[in-house]
Amino acid sequence: MKSFFFYFLKTFKDIKRFSAVFTTLVLGAILYGFFYPTAYKAQQAEDLPIIIVDQDQSALSHQIINTIQSNPNIRIAHVTSNFLEAQQQVQTQKADAILLLPEHLSSDLLADPKNTGVGLYISSAYLIRVKQIASGLASSLEYVIQNHLERFGKVSHFHPKLPIHQIPLFNPLSGYGSYIFPSVAPLIVHQTILLGVGMLIAGYREKLVWRPKSKEFFGFFASIFTIGCLACLYLFGFIFWLYDYPRGGNFWGMLLAVPIFIGCIVSLSMFVATFFDMPERVGHVLVPTSIVLFLLSGTSWPLQSMPLPLQWLSLCLPSTHAIQMFVQLNQMGVPTLIILPKLIFLSLTGILFLILAYIRLKNK
């Protein structure tokens, strides 16, 4: 037992001694936890530029434009009567959307409101961001049209339908930060451990033929395991609280899932590290995988919309199961029984990679 704790503490000393490993493995989660959500602190995009194509040139269209100008989410970049000119502005990314107020809008609204068309064209380059344009324009148009119809109530028998109220269940602020960071947080822990362990073991192997004894192997594992668990609790607890993200949905389920997830990732990292001969190669190869792993998690794009080979690949990745699992536990508050298949997958995968890492390091 003494030799186990000796290697347990020795690993911490080695991490502190290798500045690149310390920065990645320890400071990485701390700094990412502070700086990554800062970019999305406003939660919702503001001052989004739009082009208004006013072909009606009536008192109603001018009232709509004046009302839209008071909306903080939207900035009117240009008002024109030429739709092709507005389309070119969106294609060159000088604006995010086009609002088309067609000819005879005012008269058509009173004559036959159901056949009145107001066109809204949104750029698909940043769908999450420009959703604010749709909601902002909808509220502005609804307000102006209701006032206009009330003034001419004797002329028109049309009554606007009651608006649909969207109530988000698991992201009450409907913000981008509270949507994206809970999914990114497990990946931050995943990648910092993968890179840190890879550089540390590659550094050992660069200086000597590192064939750890059993106690040294598990002492190394336990030290990284401790760092990973603390990083998860720091992100899922303090950082979620600091930025007021949805949290604590299933607290006890999260406490159960964290050690299983970390054990799997540490085992995977130790196995992957055996394929590198120097620390520099670890960063060259593994850093670009962050984008791929996040894409295959199903957060930025539904897995069901991906080709079948990518769906099968995503189901083989521990990161996919971990990201989905912690969003379910922390934000949705699902019962632990629902994420049990993910826990079993991570447990079996962790045991498999731990055995493979032990065999490769002992043989090499």
Score class of each variant (00 low, 15 high):
residue 2 K to R: 06
residue 3 S to F: 01
residue 4 F to M: 02
residue 5 F to V: 13
residue 5 F to M: 10
residue 9 L to A: 05
residue 9 L to E: 06
residue 10 K to T: 06
residue 12 F to I: 03
residue 12 F to T: 03
residue 15 I to E: 00
residue 20 A to N: 10
residue 20 A to K: 07
residue 21 V to P: 00
residue 25 L to R: 08
residue 25 L to S: 04
residue 27 L to H: 06
residue 28 G to A: 13
residue 31 L to T: 03
residue 37 P to V: 12
residue 39 A to F: 09
residue 40 Y to L: 15
residue 41 K to T: 11
residue 43 Q to A: 10
residue 45 A to L: 14
residue 50 I to L: 12
residue 50 I to A: 08
residue 51 I to C: 05
residue 53 V to I: 11
residue 54 D to V: 06
residue 54 D to L: 07
residue 56 D to I: 00
residue 58 S to N: 10
residue 60 L to R: 02
residue 61 S to Y: 10
residue 61 S to I: 14
residue 71 N to C: 12
residue 76 I to T: 06
residue 83 F to M: 12
residue 85 E to P: 10
residue 88 Q to I: 13
residue 89 Q to D: 07
residue 92 T to Q: 15
residue 93 Q to Y: 05
residue 95 A to I: 06
residue 96 D to T: 01
residue 97 A to D: 08
residue 97 A to W: 04
residue 101 L to R: 02
residue 110 L to S: 05
residue 117 G to N: 15
residue 118 V to G: 07
residue 120 L to A: 09
residue 123 S to W: 04
residue 129 R to I: 14
residue 132 Q to L: 09
residue 133 I to T: 02
residue 135 S to W: 08
residue 138 A to H: 14
residue 141 L to S: 08
residue 144 V to F: 08
residue 153 G to L: 09
residue 158 F to G: 11
residue 160 P to T: 11
residue 160 P to I: 15
residue 163 P to V: 09
residue 163 P to D: 12
residue 167 I to F: 10
residue 170 F to Y: 13
residue 172 P to H: 04
residue 175 G to V: 06
residue 176 Y to I: 13
residue 178 S to W: 13
residue 181 F to T: 14
residue 182 P to L: 03
residue 184 V to I: 15
residue 188 I to P: 01
residue 192 T to A: 11
residue 193 I to G: 00
residue 197 V to I: 15
residue 208 L to P: 05
residue 208 L to S: 15
residue 210 W to Q: 12
residue 211 R to Y: 09
residue 213 K to H: 14
residue 213 K to R: 15
residue 218 F to Q: 03
residue 220 F to T: 13
residue 226 T to M: 02
residue 226 T to N: 08
residue 227 I to C: 11
residue 229 C to L: 10
residue 230 L to F: 12
residue 234 Y to I: 03
residue 235 L to K: 09
residue 242 L to M: 14
residue 245 Y to T: 13
residue 250 N to K: 05
residue 259 P to G: 05
residue 260 I to F: 01
residue 263 G to I: 04
residue 264 C to M: 08
residue 269 S to Y: 09
residue 269 S to Q: 06
residue 270 M to C: 00
residue 273 A to D: 01
residue 273 A to I: 02
residue 274 T to W: 00
residue 275 F to I: 00
residue 279 P to V: 07
residue 279 P to D: 05
residue 280 E to G: 11
residue 283 G to T: 02
residue 283 G to L: 11
residue 285 V to Q: 02
residue 286 L to E: 12
residue 290 S to A: 15
residue 296 L to S: 09
residue 298 G to D: 04
residue 299 T to C: 01
residue 299 T to L: 03
residue 300 S to E: 10
residue 301 W to K: 00
residue 304 Q to E: 01
residue 308 L to Y: 13
residue 310 L to G: 03
residue 323 I to A: 02
residue 325 M to C: 04
residue 338 I to G: 04
residue 339 I to L: 05
residue 342 K to H: 07
residue 346 L to G: 00
residue 349 T to F: 13
residue 350 G to N: 05
residue 351 I to A: 09
residue 351 I to N: 01
residue 352 L to D: 10
residue 359 I to V: 06
residue 361 L to A: 07
